[in-house]
Design a protein around this nucleic acid. Structure first.
Ligand SMILES: [Mn+2]
Ligand SMILES: [Mn+2]
Ligand SMILES: [Zn+2]
Ligand SMILES: [Zn+2]
Lengths: 134, 134
DNA sequence: TTTCATACTTGTAATTATTACAAATAGATG
DNA sequence: CATCTATTTGTAATAATTACAAGTATGAAA
């Protein structure tokens, strides 16, 4: 796997301190944090960082396809360092967003009813394993 | 199919003028309108209606499962009078939200990785038929 | 039909998420 | 070092949604 620096260079993104910290934070977790979660975590070690920078950086990363954004029901926007296609599960109770395997399905084609499909988003909603057994 | 009145009664919803108008409007179209689209249309014939009422009513209808809400990437929340499960296609260019057949897929089970699935949302994104041929 | 209780609607204020913008800063280049 | 540009920051603006209190409609009881 290429380093962050390299991936930034490939896309012509200057590797500023802030951008690197934000990406490293995101890649260190798989819980699909929100802007606020990222800000709250980073501001401890980088007291001057601004929420605007978090927004700007995440927008850029999504644009350049280094990050994926999830807009599951309610929860607001969540961010994901994994850009390979996969599905997500939202627990109604505890609110966590869990990674699932990609739904490989013959019904999901390049073209549906004449419309050209470029992206597929599958969100499952229910009760997670933990919240379930109770 | 039961009448609106009946379906309201079944769920214990009082059939106020506003609620009836909002639901009739929604059922008359299949373009998944937003709160603003609904408000702008109704305020012409009902000049005193309030946007708060649109929000309140839609929240109630979703709660009582008479309406479905869609939170496709970007576009904000859209509302759908069809509550039977089906998928949606968002055109990146013109922004319209199109109904698709339900994705009947063996991979979509009641339970995935120990998590109990209660709801499946499938959003396809790309270029619609019209915007495509150009 | 009048009275009364309750549910619903409305307008406004508050909250939250996000973007716009201009000034300050950092970093690269020569 | 001097300069130029991209990035960051703080604040203000915008947009979406919810909270709340006062007004209004409705239906049951008297
Ligand atoms: Mn993920
Ligand atoms: Mn639909
Ligand atoms: Zn849970
Ligand atoms: Zn289109």
């Amino acid at each position: 796997m290429k380093s962050l620096q390299e991936r930034f260079e490939d896309k012509g993104i200057r590797p500023s301190q802030q951008r690197l910290r934000i990406m490293k934070y995101l890649e260190g977790r798989h819980d699909h944090p929100s802007v606020d979660m990222i800000y709250d975590a980073l501001v401890r070690e980088m007291p001057t960082i601004s929420k605007t920078t978090i927004y700007n950086t995440l927008r850029l990363m999504v644009e350049k396809a280094l990050v994926a954004d999830l807009t599951i029901s309610g929860q607001g926007v969540r961010y994901d360092p994994v850009t390979e296609p996969h599905s997500h599960f939202l627990c109604r109770k505890c609110g966590q967003v869990i990674d699932l395997e990609d739904i490989e399905c013959p019904c999901l084609k390049k073209e549906v009813q004449g419309n050209k499909v470029e992206e597929v988003r599958v969100y499952l909603i229910g009760l997670c394993k933990k919240c379930h057994r109770r």
